[in-house]
Simulated assay, not measured.
Amino acid sequence: MMLLWLCVIWVFASVAVAMLPMRHQYIPGVILLLAAPVLIIMIGQQVGWIAALLGLAAFVSMFRNPLLFILAKLRGQNPELPE
């Protein structure tokens, strides 16, 4: 039951961060970005790997732009940050 509440809190926190101006999204966004894999692993352990795959798909869908930015940085490219 605790996992469910943690996931619900994570979702509401993500929505709240998305409503912030872009310059205020970085720190809470990084925290949510780092917390998501932990929650997905917990979902996989407690519920099953299919639920974890669905959670991973939702996570990648929500955070596609930051993940693409990180991927571009790892490739040595210099992507632009929005203002």
Score class of each variant (00 low, 15 high):
M1A: 12
M1H: 07
L3V: 03
L3N: 05
L3T: 00
L3H: 08
W5H: 06
W5K: 04
L6I: 01
V8W: 02
I9H: 08
I9V: 13
W10H: 10
F12G: 00
A13H: 04
S14I: 00
S14T: 07
V15D: 02
V15S: 06
A16H: 07
A16L: 14
A16Q: 07
A16D: 03
A18W: 01
M19C: 08
L20C: 06
P21R: 14
P21N: 10
P21Y: 10
R23P: 02
Q25I: 08
Q25Y: 03
Q25F: 02
Y26S: 11
Y26E: 06
I27G: 03
I27M: 12
I27K: 13
P28D: 10
P28K: 14
G29W: 03
G29N: 03
V30Y: 10
V30D: 06
V30Q: 10
I31P: 00
I31T: 07
L32F: 00
L33H: 03
L33A: 04
L33M: 13
L33I: 02
L34S: 11
A35P: 00
A35R: 00
A36P: 09
A36M: 12
P37F: 09
P37W: 13
V38C: 08
V38W: 08
L39I: 04
I40G: 03
I40M: 11
I41R: 11
I41S: 07
M42L: 15
I43L: 04
G44L: 12
G44S: 08
Q46W: 08
Q46G: 06
Q46K: 11
Q46D: 05
V47Q: 11
V47P: 05
G48H: 04
G48P: 07
W49Y: 06
W49S: 14
I50P: 02
A51C: 04
A51S: 08
L53R: 15
L53K: 12
G55Q: 08
L56H: 01
L56A: 14
L56D: 02
A57Q: 04
A57W: 01
A57T: 01
A58I: 09
A58M: 05
F59H: 05
F59T: 00
F59C: 05
V60A: 12
V60K: 05
S61F: 13
M62P: 00
F63R: 11
F63A: 14
R64L: 10
R64C: 05
N65I: 08
N65P: 01
P66I: 15
L67H: 06
L67E: 07
L68E: 12
F69A: 09
F69W: 07
I70K: 13
I70W: 10
I70T: 10
I70Y: 09
I70L: 12
K73W: 08
K73A: 04
L74P: 01
R75Y: 08
R75M: 13
G76V: 04
G76R: 15
G76N: 13
Q77G: 05
Q77S: 12
Q77C: 03
Q77T: 02
N78L: 12
N78S: 14
L81S: 15
E83Q: 15
E83N: 15
E83C: 06
